[in-house]
């Protein structure tokens, strides 16, 4: 088999995942695109391992490790996304901009008040959430 076929497929899958990471708004869709990119890398590793016929089978061993690390990553990532959703009431990564620099363009840097209006303030959109969330956020502000 020509080595160009798996290499080309891996490149195209990686770029599809790259587009998804950059263009998607929902955090879980971004995680799906990251999975596509990891699969492209795995396909490259397997193809080059089969081509080189390494006696240590480094490519396939590394592919197994990558799959396990991807599983750990998706677990942690989903836990973080669920925590953000519980605290903020949204998982849109465009609206989570509390950590951006304050000195932005002049229409953004007019003060912390306007920045808070644009971003999603913690636990204000959480009307549908239970009362323990409110208590949690209030307790964290006291702590």
């Amino acid at each position: 088999m020509h080595l160009v076929y798996p290499a080309t497929l891996a490149v195209l899958l990686f770029c599809v995942g790259l587009y998804g990471v950059l263009a998607r708004r929902n955090a879980i869709l971004v995680l799906m695109s990251v999975e596509l990119m990891l699969n492209a890398v795995n396909l490259n590793l397997v193809a080059f391992d089969v081509w080189l016929r390494d006696s240590l089978h480094a490519g396939q061993a590394l592919t197994l490790f990558t799959i396990a690390i991807a599983a750990a990553e998706i677990g942690i990532g989903l836990a973080i996304v669920l925590l953000v959703y519980r605290n903020r009431g949204s998982s849109d990564i465009d609206r989570l901009r509390d950590l951006r620099e304050g000195t932005g363009p002049p229409q953004d840097g007019s003060g912390p008040g306007s920045a808070d209006e644009k971003s999603l303030a913690p636990a204000t959109d959480n009307a549908a959430g239970s009362g323990s969330d409110q208590g949690t956020s209030a307790g964290r502000q006291h702590a």
């Binding site: 587009y19 950059l22 263009a23 998607r24 708004r25 929902n26 465009d94």
Partner: peptide
């Protein structure tokens, strides 16, 4: 609103 506003920039980068 599944896609963010910068999807054309993302498409250019990916291509």
């Amino acid at each position: 609103d599944a896609d963010s506003g910068n999807r054309w920039v993302a498409l250019a980068v990916a291509v």
